[in-house]
Design a protein around this nucleic acid. Sequence first.
DNA 1: CTTTGGATCGTCT
DNA 2: GACGATCCAAAGG
Length: 194
Amino acid sequence: MPRSFYDTDPRDRARCLLNKLLVRDGRAGRIVEVEAYAGDEDPASHAFGGLTTRNATMFGPPGHLYVYRSYGIHWCANAVFGPESVAMAVLLRALVPVSGLAPMRAARPAARSDRDLCRGPGRLTQALGITGADDGADLVTGDRGVAIVDDGTPSPELPGVSARVGITRALDRPWRWYVTAEACVSGPRRTGPV
DNA sequence: CTTTGGATCGTCT
DNA sequence: GACGATCCAAAGG
């Protein structure tokens, strides 16, 4: 994806990431669930309240990877959106495994089936081997082996839409999008289509 | 299938 | 000193 793809408001463009590929060295998965976080306008965003050491990558140029530690245990991966100094991002919540299944299984012995390899934000980073060391990687150039690429598969015309998962504030904002009827979408219950 | 509780630690108050 | 943009195993229907 070109840099310009990311240099805009993720609330308008996050759904365009659906069906794109997240690639990590020999492993790849199709993005089927995303959430937009709108910086200082969004009480649920890590950037709400301004620049800190943790969220600094979100304030940088678009098209980079923002990785943070969740609940002290897991890593979660975002694509940074919007111009420099504007801290917006899209959380990648689920993938359909496409290639490199063997190393994914090795990285996630707890997964009972391939469906669970990348179903959830903490799980997909574990399956692809993404950690805090990858924070700041350039998704456009793939300078550190992580990239988002378009293989020609179009995004769904009518993605599912819902409130974001796992947050306690700004629950009224419908900024989660997913591929309807896709078994690898996360959550105990999948919300219905639009 | 659903619910529940524990793990674990960097970050910000 | 509290609290997460979570996951997993265990237990009950």
